[in-house]
Design a protein around this nucleic acid. Structure first.
Lengths: 313, 313
DNA sequence: CCTGATTTGGAACAAATATTCCATTTTGAG
DNA sequence: CTCAAAATGGAATATTTGTTCCAAATCAGG
């Protein structure tokens, strides 16, 4: 019904349903009533849980008032919540000792349209919405790009994801060794060319504030200051793919002079591995072509503060 | 062959392959041999990695010696290792920017029979269970406070809070006006002294990448370039309390010349208000004396991308 | 023990997904 | 520049997986 207000048309539709329902009731026997009700459930159908927590709660709520097979589903699922994301219906069914159709019914009782929809909940929770990132980007491109606030939301989201990923992937051993290495250096040389300059510049600022000798190599004015690297110093190189040749060359030079080289980069760190004694990788979720550097900055700052603490102790 | 033991039937199948191979070899010329060999590789094909670690290693090993599309696969996969378990071939392919068949080929090069087999590796690893975000963060925080990993947890937390706050406090009107103003400028001048340099430097990088005329004023070498600001340009100043005198003076100069001045700063922005036409404030949660700049970077990037979009339209 | 309502299992079907294949393009050696 | 080998993209196909449906089994109340 084009042109009609959505609310009104919704009410009309509901009315029609109710009328149709009553009508059938009159001509059909009482036994048809239930069948009709299950085949045409009224709009009060339970909405599916939107979060894993809600799912848990709903499970606990239902438990106890279910027929045997469905109870088995509930039990098995609540015991293996985190494997839903990577299991097929058949696997879940086998695990619970029920046929696949029982699992399907169970999903629908919870309010999902089917197993796939339920699984989506867990997959999203697991990979934090990464899969459909491309889609969102496409949407944004096609949609109202003139709304800067939407962009902010995307970058915020990318930043949050990056930070979460950092807590997952953090190589604590490498971090500790990096702190060790850098805290023993007389001067810390910071390499940060192009895209890496912001991070390196911030490190330079922070080290200076904490009275730790540090020197920024950023190729300003095309100036090369590699001879400032002296035995006893260390190099902390920040670089991302595609790795700038300046950084690689500076790292090689440091290496040749016997300086320890710590690299802060993104995975895969392959090309830089050769020049590095220690590699800290940080995966930054990028939105479009640009990265918000949240995780990188967090890791870099942690490194700096840890080095400062170690030095004082 | 129903009724036959699986092992025996496997051997038969292998024998058949070998026989077929020899036969073709005999009737084909020497030049066909290679083609046949690559199409029907003998059983000595590389065994697939058995653990996620081995997978990582193999990826790093192969990287660099691969043709373009396969290299893209390798890069994307190593950056999104943990989403393999819940992604389809099509999603991975889209993420890497390659057609699905390239992903398939890549799986086979790694020694897997196909994508499914590779995915199984990750699904298994996943269902062995990893703790959720909250738990991991708690783990990182616990233990001696001087542990670098604990610092990471703190900075991650600070970053997250900042980002969250940004979505709440964002002044959409001001942002829109800022985009308006900057997209009309012939050259965007970026002021970023001291602590603000990282943000301004990143903005300069991003603008340059998007072919938007921008100039960074950071006082490098004590150089003052205020006369580069000409009518028709605009100034975007990034600064935090305590506001550097250079920034204030540059803003005043811009104002005197009739240039619109947009300021990106932290609240309260009182001292800077006088020099600014537009103020964007972003509250960065700091841990100790240092800020992770997550929210600021996110806002700055959004601004840049929005300006670029507006200019093209 | 009968009867109608509910639950159940599995077979049939539909949709999504992986995999293969081959015509075309690109690359690299001579 | 030429040619063969390698790489590539996409369409066709195979397989797996999800979903629906209904006949049979089970259950509860009289």
């Amino acid at each position: 019904m084009p042109g009609m207000a959505p609310a009104a048309s919704g009410i009309i539709a509901d009315l029609k349903k109710v009328m149709e329902f009553s009508f059938r009731l009159m001509e059909g026997g009482i036994e048809q009533q239930r069948a009709i009700m299950t085949r045409h459930p009224l709009p009060d159908a339970t909405p599916p849980p939107a979060t894993v927590e809600a799912f848990r709660a709903r499970l606990a709520d239902l438990s106890g008032s279910l027929p045997r097979r469905l109870q088995q589903c509930a039990d098995h699922l609540s015991a293996h919540l985190d494997s839903i994301a990577v299991s097929t219906v058949a696997e879940i069914a086998a695990g619970a000792g029920v046929p696949p159709s029982a699992v399907m019914r169970f999903c629908q009782i919870l309010g999902f349209s089917g197993y796939s929809e339920m699984q989506r909940l867990f997959r999203n929770a697991l990979s934090l919405g990464l899969p459909d990132y491309g889609t969102r980007l496409a949407n944004l491109k096609s949609g109202p790009a003139d709304r800067p606030a939407a962009l902010v939301a995307e970058f915020v989201e990318a930043g949050r994801l990056s930070l979460e990923k950092l807590t997952q992937d953090l190589d604590e051993t490498a971090l500790n060794q990096a702190v060790d290495t850098l805290s023993r250096a007389s001067v810390i040389h910071l390499a940060g060319y192009r895209r890496a300059l912001p991070v390196a510049a911030y490190l330079a600022y922070v080290f200076e504030k904490m009275a730790i000798p540090a020197m920024l190599h950023a190729g300003i004015g095309g100036l090369d200051q590699r001879n400032a690297m002296r035995s006893g110093d260390a190099l902390l190189a920040v670089t991302f793919a595609p790795y700038s040749s300046e950084t690689l060359s500076l790292a090689a030079e440091a290496r040749a002079r016997g300086l320890p080289v710590v690299v802060l980069t993104d995975p895969p760190a392959t090309p830089i591995l050769r020049q590095a004694d220690l590699v800290l990788t940080v995966a930054e979720v990028d939105f479009g072509a640009f990265r918000s550097l949240s995780a990188t900055t967090a890791l870099a700052l942690s490194l700096a503060v840890a080095v400062a603490t170690r030095r004082q102790g």
